[in-house]
Amino acid sequence: MTTLQTVFAKARAENRAALVGYLPAGFPTKDGAVAAATAMVEAGCDVIEIGLPYSDPLMDGPTIQDAVHRSLTNGTRIGDVMRTVEGVAKTGAATLVMTYWNPIDRYGPARFARDLANAGGVGTITPDLTPEESGVWLQESKDAGIDTVFLVAPSSTEDRIGKVAKICTGFVYAASLMGVTGARESVGSAAEGLVARTRRHTSLPVCVGLGVGTGAQAAEVAAYADGVIVGSAFIRRLLDAPDEAAGLASVRELAAELAAGVRR
């Protein structure tokens, strides 16, 4: 079994959804990101997505844009992303990289897949890579032994869900609503239907992201999805904290609340 398969099997055995946390590398600092992700794992995150900061994050809302901008201003490079993955993977959590396609394209897909695998990363989530353009990445990921996760959205037709699900390994990422990343008052009502539609095309776990930020929302999503993905809410905690220690405590507290949510 791959690391991701083990994670979802374990969660299923405990009759709960897995908790997936996102943080960009280099935010709040290079070491601070590892510390925050470690706190998230200790408080109950099963999977960590490390964001690769990119200059043009067109599907991200203001919170992630802000964090990514700070990270790039801090001088975060792909080598730092790999070192972050290495640090987080040591916690034992399944660690993926979430990235727009151009950084991989430019770095070299084969090199990126190999470096990620060597750092202990288990896969990637590529939100702007469509099935039509994914051929090279699927091959390189397979060769390096890492998983490929892609997104489906409420607007996706049956045909598109089928195409996307077919190229996913690890899990399928279902965007809960039409919009950019960011915590919201309520999780989109379209999410449950999308998960159900996705299940008709795959036996892979289906995780729901976008807009989830509280324990109650996590519990709501956990009722129908295999995993709950939270990003902006963690970043918000770090942005609002007066210092690093307070940020870590706040992130830990949120992870614990969400972990309780997915177990309700």
């Binding site: 939100p127 890579l129 039509e132 353009e133 959205a153």
Partner: peptide, 19 residues
């Protein structure tokens, strides 16, 4: 696939593909 030779195509969130 919207390609002019190797150029063009679509690199966008799946949410926009139907539009």
């Amino acid at each position: 696939n919207g390609k002019f030779g190797v150029f063009g195509g679509r690199f966008v969130p799946e949410a926009l593909i139907p539009a």
